[in-house]
Amino acid sequence: MNISASSAPPLVLASQSPFRRDMLQAAGLAFEALAAGIDERAVEAPLAETGATPGDVAQVLAEAKALDVGEKRPDALVIGCDQTLSLDDELFHKPADMEAARRHLLRLSGRTHQLHSAVALVRSGETVWRHVSVAHLTMRPLTPEFIGRHLASVGQAALSSVGAYQIEGQGIQLFERIDGDYFTIVGLPLLTLLARLRDLGAIDG
């Protein structure tokens, strides 16, 4: 699908994530943000029986969010996003409390995990593009004492991320190696998305 500059639809981000909103705003995009109304765990549950990879799960969730918001805004080009964190193909979810955050960091300590960031574009009920990028992050060995001090310092912010860390903040101190681009790690493969929006004529090229 190609869109002429004169007929470019409004952009809608199917997310209330402040990190994704900030990325698009910093890039100069004019858009609206609407939260999707899907039950992510309900969408994810049947995928476990099909042998879906963490990247597949991220892609299905990103597309489901875009399609859900697209029903409300069929006039718009809807951007759906999702990110999964996996360690040895085990999916992690956002920690429910600080004890769960502590367990997350203990599991990830000294090991390499993967972040799969997916994005999908939907217009008029049709998925017109999808993409998944991956980053590999190696956490340095962490003592339980350091984890306790780190979580006390960052506070409730640890519960807003699936890995119980924010790479753009104090979470960077947890790592010894990162392979992948910053935008994938934060949760939206922005460079690839912008390129596709230019290809579609949805933003100035």
Rank of each mutant, 00 (worst) to 15 (best):
M1K: 01
I3N: 00
S7N: 14
S7I: 09
A8L: 09
P10E: 11
P10K: 06
L11I: 13
V12P: 12
A14N: 09
S17W: 00
R21Y: 01
L24G: 02
A27R: 02
A33M: 05
A35M: 05
G37F: 07
E40M: 10
E40I: 10
V43A: 10
V43Y: 09
T50S: 15
T53H: 01
T53N: 02
A58Y: 07
Q59T: 03
A66I: 10
G70R: 08
A76W: 03
L77G: 03
V78H: 06
G80F: 04
T84M: 11
L85K: 00
S86K: 06
D88G: 00
E90P: 01
E90F: 07
P95D: 08
A96H: 12
D97V: 08
M98V: 08
A100D: 15
A101G: 10
R103K: 14
S109D: 05
R111I: 02
H113S: 04
Q114R: 13
S117C: 10
S117M: 09
L121Y: 05
V122G: 00
V122R: 01
G125M: 04
V128Q: 04
V128Y: 00
H131N: 12
H136C: 06
H136T: 03
H136L: 13
L137W: 04
I147P: 12
I147G: 11
H150M: 13
G155Y: 10
L159H: 06
L159Y: 06
S160L: 13
S161N: 13
Y165Q: 09
Q166I: 00
I167C: 08
I167R: 02
E168I: 00
E168A: 03
Q170D: 14
L174I: 14
L174D: 11
L174N: 12
E176T: 12
R177G: 00
I178G: 07
L188Q: 02
P189I: 05
T192V: 13
L193G: 07
L194Q: 12
R196G: 01
D199M: 10
L200F: 08
G201V: 05
I203Q: 10
